[in-house]
């Protein structure tokens, strides 16, 4: 598969802190797919995605976003992608609309387009009554929804989310999942890490499992099951078996 056909192509990506966090990782995510990246705590998921998003400089390797070399031309790569972390980073003293106006301004989006899009996003996430309230009194779920709306307001082709459902109530989680699926249906690409395996099982087109900084399994749920030799195994069972095997090998 060539880089041009991939939303994300990572080759030999390496990052060391005290020990290797990401170890010569190769990863390809196709355009228009929902990709779930799973792994135990400390496996290197967040480090990988932070390097892809341009938040962390890799020690070695390449990152290509829709054919753009993200390390050589980060500005062009950032123009077409969005990053949402597990801890919603928004400004307490801004209202959701002001926050989205700021994000749209940073991405250079025409205000006539972005204002309409911002209102639609916030309404679809159930934030209509709070459009002009400052975010300082918002719950974690509301803050996460504002952060997600900020990530989507510039209509990115690639959306990277690190544990976006952590701490959300069932209704908020449903809002977020619905919006992400809508984006994928509209041709967008989503890469998401999660510890909620049911979400990956239900939503992801393909699943990657990462441990000790390396991709140890990848495929559709059916492919993973086939590899496991049983068609009724849950993702949770497969995940635990894979991680245990990797830990034993290490």
């Amino acid at each position: 598969m060539t880089s041009e056909l991939s939303a994300l192509a990572v080759r030999g990506l390496t990052k060391r802190f005290d020990r290797p966090a990401v170890d010569a990782l190769d990863l390809t995510v196709r355009a228009g797919e929902f990709y779930a990246l799973l792994g135990p705590n400390g496996a290197g998921k967040t480090t990988t995605l932070r390097m892809v998003a341009g938040l962390l400089r890799p020690d070695a390797g390449t990152v290509s976003i829709f054919g753009i070399d993200a390390l050589a031309d980060p500005v062009s790569a950032k123009q077409i992608m969005a990053w949402v972390s597990d801890e919603p980073m928004i400004y307490d003293k801004l209202t959701p609309l002001e926050y989205l106006e700021f994000v749209a301004g940073l991405w250079g989006i025409d205000p006539r387009t972005s204002e309409k899009s911002a209102r639609n996003l916030l309404v679809s996430l159930g934030l209509e009554p709070h459009l002009n309230e400052r975010c300082e009194g918002f719950s974690k779920g509301m803050r996460q929804k504002v952060a997600l709306a900020g990530a989507l307001v510039h209509d990115p082709r690639l959306i990277i989310l690190d544990e976006p459902l952590t701490g959300l109530d069932a209704l908020s989680a449903r809002h977020v999942k619905g919006l992400l699926q809508e984006r994928v249906r509209a041709g967008g690409t989503v890469i998401m890490t999660t510890h909620i395996l049911e979400v990956a099982e239900r939503m992801a087109d393909r699943i990657g499992v990462i441990a000790t900084g390396r991709l140890i399994a990848e495929g559709t749920l059916a492919e993973l099951r086939a590899r496991n030799g049983s068609n009724d195994t849950t993702l949770e069972d497969m995940f635990i078996a894979l991680v245990d095997t990797e830990a034993a090998a290490a």
Partner: peptide, 14 residues
């Protein structure tokens, strides 16, 4: 709850 002022998005550089 502090209400912000509702107004149209503004144009301008990044």
């Amino acid at each position: 709850v502090t209400q912000g002022r509702a107004r149209a998005f503004r144009t301008g550089s990044r």
